[in-house]
């Protein structure tokens, strides 16, 4: 059976771009797939240099690839994952993709004419836009999951697991670069009374409102997390005790002066803060010391920041 007639209709119908270049990288042939998507007419551009037919090619890279095909007589490849597209071609998902151009997988194959001498290169271009779109969606989902995984659902600050993990990293960093590092641990004063008076929704409202307020007082590099219940922690990288106490006092004052409107009622709250600076302690020791300072702040009348000192341990024993 004579099958030669198949070739032309197949090339026309093929859902893959076929582009043939000669050894000078002049356009010899392309099929309908490319003609329609690039809106070019083969008859008008045949014999022209590749870069004169298709605009904005990554020319230096592409020439090097084509050189390898020609000189080594081996195929070369390009994947959309590394290079989204080579030739600017329209794709069939203009509405559902954020990419203007078709994502492409391209194989570049060496061809030799029947004369056994003339070399050509065939570029096969496959539309990978669907894969590209799915991967974008996947990446987005992964980012959302990562965000959810480190965030406290109620207040939007870091959750305890992530925060404590970061504390470990910050300690390593402080150790390595000999930078100061401080930690604030604070607790809402008489939170139980708030809950009793305004209900748990009122308590939640205060937690959300104060998290937002305190967050606005911090630097981008500070790490603010919910330690549990109404207890929160703030990691202050590159900050010594003096700086940390200033921050703590500012937070205390700002919170105490802040009026919150809940169900037509004006609400006020105060917090107590324990402050500790890193000096070769472990994560647990550091938190333990901040907790001791926090406890002393409570004992000394609340609405204040107290810096950790070893003497506090004795104070703690006495009151216990």
């Amino acid at each position: 059976m004579q099958l030669d007639w198949l070739l032309q209709p197949l090339l026309t119908q093929l859902n893959t771009g076929v582009l043939v270049l000669d050894a000078q990288y002049r356009v010899v042939f392309f099929n309908q797939f490319i003609a329609r998507r690039a809106d070019v007419d083969l008859a008008k551009v045949q014999g022209n240099l590749l870069e004169d037919v298709f605009a904005d090619l990554p020319l230096a890279w592409l020439r090097r690839k084509l050189d390898s095909v020609l000189h080594l007589q081996v195929p070369a490849f390009s994947s959309w994952e590394q290079r989204q597209y080579i030739i600017k071609l329209a794709h069939l998902r203009p509405l559902s993709s954020d990419s203007q151009y078709m994502a492409q997988n391209c194989s570049m194959l060496p061809l030799t004419a029947p004369d056994g001498v003339s070399r050509y290169i065939c570029l096969l271009i496959e539309d990978a836009t669907d894969a590209y779109v799915y991967q974008q969606q996947l990446q987005q989902s992964v980012m959302q999951l990562e965000h959810a995984n480190r965030t406290d659902g109620l207040t939007g600050v870091y959750n305890r697991r992530y925060w404590q993990q970061q504390l470990g990293y910050e300690i390593q960093r402080a150790e390595r670069y000999q930078h100061p590092l401080s930690l604030l641990l604070f607790d809402l004063d008489k939170f139980k009374d708030l809950n009793d008076q305004y209900g748990h929704q009122g308590g939640d409202f205060v937690l959300i409102e104060l998290s937002r307020l305190i967050g606005s007082l911090l630097r981008d590099t500070d790490l603010f997390g919910r330690y549990g219940g109404e207890e929160f922690g703030i990691i202050l990288p590159d900050t010594g005790m003096t700086g940390a106490l200033q921050v703590a006092n500012r937070i205390c004052d700002t919170v105490a002066q802040h009026k919150m409107l809940y169900n037509q009622q004006t609400l006020k709250a105060t917090i107590s803060i324990g402050v500790v600076s890193y000096f070769e302690q472990s994560v647990d020791e550091l938190i333990q010391r901040a907790d001791t300072a926090l406890y002393c702040a409570k004992r000394q009348g609340r609405n204040r920041a107290v810096a950790y000192q070893p003497e506090l341990e004795g104070y703690l024993k006495k009151v216990k």
Partner: peptide, 14 residues
Amino acid sequence: AEMLTDISSVLTTT
């Protein structure tokens, strides 16, 4: 990634 796939392709297919 592209450099690594490119050099791999050249070295292996040759």
